Computed example of a mutant assay.
Amino acid sequence: MDKSDQITTRDHNQRLVLQALFNAKETSRAQLAVDLNLHKSTISSIYRDLDELQFIEDLGEGTTTETGGRKAKMIRFNRQYGYVISFDMGRHHLRMAVVRLSGEVMFQALDNVDGMSVAEVIVLMKGHIKNHKDRSHGTKEGLMGVAVGIHGVVDENKVVYSPFFDYADVDVVSELNQVTTVPVILENEANAAAVYIRDYHDYFSRDKYDSLIALNIHYGIGAGIIIKGQLYHGMQGRAGEVGRSIVKMSANGPIRVEDLYSEDAMLERLAILTGQQVINRDVFVNFAKQQSSVVTRLLDDWVIGIAQVTYNIIQTAAPQVIFIHSRFIAEMPELLGRVVLAYQKMNPTSESEILFANRSVYQATLLGGAAIVTRKVLDLNNLDLKFKH
């Protein structure tokens, strides 16, 4: 084996050890050797290097072995190694979270950005970064990366299209690089939500899904797609734009799925039907709680529409599971059962599951973005990682 091959093998093994440390609640050098099928001397050498870099947290001695041998020193990935900042750049709100590399949220903030331009929202983002970048928050390395969830199409770390903000003359990465030198990664918000489900395993099933879709029904409608454990972007990052699917043509042009069933569309439809101003989701939900016949009919249509969207996605991609992310369902939980029932009538033999991860509705994009950046800074992009809440 020549020297370059030795270096490649060494780097590969080191990544495997770091992955195992990251995923373990606790482990030991001996256990790593067994789990990874590596020689103890290889593990010891890699351990010394990672320990010197402070990637390893010492948890103390484990229990005595069955044969009465020496207690092993228990270790895991150092959860105080560093942190990332993640943004969800929504139409009405800018969400922000400071997240340890291991996944735990340390701090969150929410800004109202209704009516703001991209430039004004970026000023807010810069302010958050400045406020945290020189603070370690108890970690060794401090800030190591920034993620931005975009409600639109992202390709090669640039915004290609968004129905909510005009990014034409704005380079988000360059703007944020004015206040930080750490990596800045942009990702479509539904894609980030899909990564969140994959990496945080936010579901009750014991099964591990490596083929899943996150259907995000918020201001627009988009789908994040995981195939064989990997995020699928499609050509120019345009995969998953299901909200732009055409339902029918009208004299004014195409009518798309998100023109009918996104949150914004539902608020607008209710306002037209009632002649009253429906300024936000809370007003819509209050109408529903009053059992208004207008809202009841509107929600009946929404249930059938979302069931049809789900049916079409499953017929196209055949995932193991679709996770529906909808704040309507979070606040009116009975809607999920109705969607599932409507879908089952359309496709009674389907084996694809339809689930709702309530815990992640408001955090999926934030935490998925944090996971994406963490993988980048640790050079663990294509390995299976288990992040913690």
Rank of each mutant, 00 (worst) to 15 (best):
L50P: 15
L94S: 10
E268T: 09
A271S: 10
S174T: 07
R15M: 05
F287S: 01
V160L: 13
I372L: 11
R238C: 14
E141T: 10
D111K: 13
K386L: 13
P163F: 06
R135H: 14
N381P: 08
I56N: 04
K289Y: 12
P183H: 04
Y81L: 14
I372A: 11
T274K: 08
T67C: 12
A24R: 00
V123A: 11
P163H: 09
G115F: 10
N347T: 03
L273H: 05
A193N: 04
E57I: 04
Y200E: 15
R100G: 13
N37E: 07
Q236P: 11
R269H: 12
Y209C: 14
T296M: 08
F77Q: 07
H218N: 15
M116Q: 15
N286W: 03
I129M: 07
A72T: 01
T316N: 15
I122D: 07
P254L: 05
A192G: 02
S45M: 02
E141G: 12
D88V: 00
S45K: 12
A364E: 12
V160W: 12
A357L: 05
M96F: 04
K388S: 14
M74P: 09
K158H: 06
L298V: 02
H151L: 10
Q308V: 11
M96I: 03
R244W: 06
D202H: 07
G337T: 05
M106L: 14
M249T: 01
L212F: 02
N37G: 12
D301I: 05
A20F: 07
K208Q: 11
A370H: 05
M74R: 10
V172K: 04
I322A: 01
L299R: 06
D49R: 14
G224Y: 02
L186N: 02
Y219C: 14
A194M: 03
Y161L: 06
T365C: 15
L36G: 02
K228N: 15
A190H: 01
N37D: 11
T139K: 15
K158W: 00
L143S: 03
E66Y: 00
S360T: 10
Y196N: 14
G240L: 08
S28K: 10
R281L: 14
F22E: 02
Y362I: 08
V153N: 02
L355H: 00
N347W: 12
R206Q: 14
H39V: 03
F164N: 11
M249R: 05
G243S: 09
Q236K: 09
R359S: 09
V34N: 14
S28A: 10
N112L: 09
G60K: 00
D300Q: 12
V361Y: 00
E66V: 02
I197R: 14
V242G: 13
E26S: 13
S44T: 01
S292Q: 06
R48V: 11
S352P: 07
I246K: 03
I272K: 13
G145Y: 00
R375V: 02
V17A: 04
I324M: 01
A265D: 03
N358R: 13
T274I: 04
E187C: 07
D202Q: 01
E57R: 09
N78G: 13
S205C: 01
P183C: 04
P254Y: 04
